[in-house]
Design a protein around this nucleic acid. Structure first.
Lengths: 362, 362
DNA sequence: AGTCAGCGTGAGAGCGCTCTCATGTCGTGC
DNA sequence: GCACGACATGAGAGCGCTCTCACGCTGACT
């Protein structure tokens, strides 16, 4: 690759001239080389290498109407996004999968009300071929925006599809939150705990709701003692506070299911401060099985979801949506269950399994 | 905005027709409207709104040679990137600043050897106007690639500029690592500690090196007792292991300066396991002042660097590099010191201050 | 009254690529 | 020996935008 240090980047034209063929032929070679005589193909390849030719993406996507990039939109108040390794992990899974498909990842955070405008505009502007959206709360306008813009979108976590009218079924990747919660609570019941409290996430998110439902189901009580339920907002501080509320309202509790590891950590802190031993006095189960779980004191019994894999699945789903032909035979991932009864092959929401990991806290 | 649900997106041409002007005039209005009669401008704006016109970015960047996007390249083994809130925080700062300048953020992780190829190609392909690079280790080929591609680049942390030959001075944002480390160790000295160990980061990174130098300086010994130095690799596990090594090699140590909060947490864990009380038996100081510091048990005395601000500064520096005219009067940030003796106004490395935060661990 | 600067606007040439269609060149079958 | 299809290649028309330049108009100055 003997490129000019700083001259203008070579164009198709230049390569064509050097190889003694037409622009069209060079284009064909650059895009796979089908229908070009081997000898010519080789000559063109050499010219490309010699000039250090790299296709101009703007020109290409101007005509193809494809950008080779997807947006990842994270609509989460700043508190949670990066103190919780959850997003990072998922992002990495996404990044891996996209990189493998030579697709770029555009990261956008929604923080303020006015960000919606900017992002909505951006998504409609055709800068990206599709979008991955995270942790939307109930009234988030983003899904509607994406739909209006006709932008293929995959959600992280089952979206609360209140807003959309006659929209097609949304595509998403989620874990079986309800089942995970059930496993957690059943484990506590199996250890003889009877006054089991729950620290929930914000109840305008389906993941938080589903876990709460799983808790209810496992207890077999549709209306559990309200003193045993507190909202921890999916943050460590929230978990700390929620645990304090719970202890005040129900001093006799003997277990707590925190719907995220971070909240479980907060809860542990409160329990320690109040002199309750874990797990002897109060057993604690978390959810996620990310770093905070293993590093808690004592290490958390928790529900594992393969977060990185979820990210990967989201990306794969979107890529398939964008280009069904390229649907590599990369399917049939272990532990993945497809919701049945849907459209074209593989284009359906994906629910991954949850699994209890027993450590010392319960 | 009464856009067609799914029709082809309107073009300049369409807007021009509706407003009864030429394409050129619409273009002028869309790009600020300078040199267009107010009345006409208004008419065009209405047409734009009516059609829901959004400029096609590919067409635009084809002619302007600008993409309005920058790459953020993170070259860090997976272990650290998202278990440490450091990157997330910095990313957020970057994102904020870029969003304010309507610039997109392309995120790319380097994990494998072959990723370098892909990313190098990408950076040369003119997809982005500039790049922000993080935590490069000594022999990282990325800076050279960026330079060869003529891509404006700002580094996070002072790069080890071994590779580059006659390159211009690299632009970077860093904290005063050496001073931060000095403060940490002086604090320990001030508390009467005499056998102060250090848990370093990987020594092929300047931040780790600089902190170690600060440690040496504060001690006043160019060659401190090697038994008091261990590499913790900037990870929690590494910190745990390093602490164990230190205790084995120098059981009489009475303090440890861990060069990151995560490593300090690991160290705390080992100390707890070995029955050493903190801070009574062993005082511990961390570095970063991110979540892990406040959540440690006991809460960590640590060195604060405003990570998000660093991210913001990196982005600002790059934006200024890309478009000097737009250098808003957003300068003169508190606590920021510019390295003197450089090129055009403001285009110089930035070193932000470090500050000791005293909590309970020392 | 004539000149000319200055401003607002339009015409049109590309930016670098893809893709359709026409053209040319064989090989095959009757 | 001729018609025809298959295949390889080239010519050229855009994709939607920006930007230069030319043009016409107004108003100020000689």
């Amino acid at each position: 690759m003997v490129s000019e240090p700083n001259g203008p980047r070579p164009t198709l034209e230049a390569v064509a001239a050097l190889a003694g063929v037409s622009r069209a032929t060079v284009s064909r070679v650059v895009n796979g080389g089908a229908g070009v005589r081997a000898e010519v193909r080789e000559r063109v390849r050499e010219a490309v290498a010699e000039l250090g030719y790299v296709p101009n993406s703007a020109a290409r996507s101007l005509v193809t109407r494809r950008t080779g990039a997807v947006a990842v939109v994270i609509a989460e108040p700043e508190t949670r996004v990066f103190s919780d390794p959850f997003f990072g992990r998922q992002l990495r899974g996404i990044s891996r999968e996209l990189a493998a498909a030579d697709t770029q990842l555009l990261l956008m955070f929604v923080e303020h009300r006015d960000d919606y405008d900017r992002i909505g505009r951006y998504l409609s502007a055709g800068h990206v071929d599709g979008a991955l959206m995270f942790s939307l709360h109930r009234d988030d306008p983003l899904p509607a925006m994406a739909e209006r813009a006709g932008l293929p979108t995959v959600f992280g976590g089952r979206p609360d599809w209140a807003g959309a009218g006659r929209a097609p079924r949304p595509l998403y990747v989620d874990t079986d939150n309800r089942d995970g919660a059930r496993q957690a609570v059943r484990h506590l019941l199996g250890r003889g705990r009877r006054r089991i409290a729950v620290i929930t996430g914000p109840l305008d998110q389906t993941s938080a709701l589903d876990r709460l439902d799983g808790y209810r189901e496992a207890l077999g009580t549709p209306e559990p003692d309200p003193r045993l339920i507190a909202d921890g907002g999916f943050t460590a501080q929230g978990g700390e506070r929620a645990m304090a509320e719970l202890l005040d309202a129900a001093p006799d509790l003997d277990a707590v299911f925190a719907c995220s590891d971070l909240m479980a950590n907060g809860a542990l802190r409160t329990l320690r401060a109040r002199g309750r031993r874990v797990p002897d006095d109060v057993a604690v189960v978390g959810y996620d099985d990310l770093e905070p779980a293993a590093w808690a004191d004592p290490p958390l019994t928790t529900v594992r979801q393969d977060v990185e894999e979820m990210g990967r699945l989201m990306a794969r789903l979107l890529l398939r949506l964008l280009d069904p032909r390229k649907a590599e035979a990369a399917d049939g991932v272990a532990g993945v269950e497809q919701v049945p009864g849907d459209g074209p092959a593989g284009l359906a929401p994906v629910i991954t399994g949850a699994r209890l990991v027993v450590r010392e806290s319960a």
